[in-house]
Design a protein around this nucleic acid. Structure first.
Lengths: 229, 229
DNA sequence: GTAAAAATAATTGTCGACATTTCGCGTGTG
DNA sequence: CACACGCGAAATGTCGACAATTATTTTTAC
């Protein structure tokens, strides 16, 4: 009964977290306008607070903040999407290498727990949770690896990946990824860093190739296309 | 005569840029308190704007924003410092690879111009500009490489490196880096990506090794040390 | 004389209101 | 009938003031 009250949440971080997960679960579609007054009444907060929240989300790149226009759910372009994947191919093998070298039983338990959640979401066919948890898996790897700089990078990259999947992905691709995560965890648990890194690269390439980046371009960049003609 | 007026700057980005370079040039030492009222009167702006500026700088990790306490110039810990270097060793070779594969004459001209600035600062023994420009060099590589995600990562990493150098570096180490940059540019210009990547790794390792991470710990964490005793 | 405690001063967090800009709609004109 | 101009409404940017918390100083007790 406590958490049922959708309004009257207090902390800035609570509000930010709610909008954040709403975006990552595709309850808020990319491009959606996030009006300040509207959010203020919804969360029972003042516009000042909402403004802080939106600024925070903008810095995590899940919303675009356009001057004199307002805040919109981020809508990564095709170029940004492939940039994100390229960055992930650089960073994530390094994260895995670091994690494998300092893995302990506590970390392994975290990974198992994460896998349990993913399996549960998959069992329930909860598409929204599946994609969100899939991103959280990669964040968890970074957090367990323990490099603060890489943690921040990964958080941003996985958020953008999440948005990209909703924008450009064929819905069939979501299901085939669960096994990938399990294989990666197995290789990490076996301290076989090389194998885990290779699996991660395959995983990332598989996701990127499953995206329909060409066809979607027509709709996404419509205005910029005609800008040049 | 226009830019001489130190007060009455208008835009948020202008103010942020000024504080940003002041921090990167070590005019503001790590740990310095950045009071809102004070900055507001200095820049002739309202506290609301200064608040936005500080939030922006906090998201670039050059200031720490402590609740109910205010803003302070960031003071990277030893762990954060080595995390930053580890992240750079992952990312920067990738940036170079990408840059080398799409280098054109315009990009090369940018690199030459940057080298000219660095040489000039070195000639004038402008220590502050040397370190700042040294960081900008790495940012420029990322920008020319063109990956938006990596550009943001690099900007944060180079800022933190800049602060780390001021906190932990022996002053002798600043001079030996100019040649490193020239060699890297030469290898990139020759499209020898492998050599440029290797030089970059050596460069990063040389910087990290020149840091006095152990001794400095005594002074940096003095209060936290006695907290436990 | 020292140390704890209370009062004071200063700083940050929050709010509501005003100013400015943008967007939607209606009207007018060619 | 189509297009453009202009007006009105709504949203964002900015400010000053009040509330709440923290830091400092003074007072008081031992």
């Amino acid at each position: 009964m406590r958490t049922r009250k959708s309004a009257k949440e207090k902390t800035i971080e609570e509000i930010a977290e709610k909008i954040y997960t709403a975006i990552l679960e595709h309850r808020l579609a990319p491009g959606t306008k996030l009006g300040e007054d509207r959010l203020a009444t919804i969360f029972g907060a003042s516009r000042t607070r909402i403004r802080d929240v939106l600024a925070h989300l903008a810095n995590e790149r899940v919303v675009d903040l356009i001057p004199q226009r307002g805040a919109f759910v981020a809508k990564p372009s095709v170029e940004e999407a492939s940039d994100v994947f390229e960055a992930r191919r650089l960073i994530e093998p390094g994260i895995i290498r670091r994690l494998a070298s300092r893995l302990d039983s506590k970390m392994l338990a975290s990974l198992r727990e994460q896998q349990r959640k993913e399996a549960e979401a998959l069992r329930l066919h909860d598409e929204r949770a599946i994609v969100r948890l899939s991103g959280e898996f990669h964040n968890l790897l970074a957090e367990l690896a323990g490099n603060t700089a890489l943690i921040r990078c990964m958080r941003e990259l996985s958020s953008l990946t999440c948005l990209t999947i909703f924008l450009y992905d064929a819905p069939t691709a979501t299901s085939c990824r669960a096994a990938d995560h399990a294989n990666i965890v197995a290789a990490i648990a076996a301290k076989d860093s090389a194998k885990a890194e290779a699996l991660m690269l395959q995983h990332l390439e598989a996701i990127e190739k499953s995206l329909k980046l060409e066809g979607a371009r027509y709709f996404a960049d419509l205005e910029t296309i005609f800008q040049d003609i």
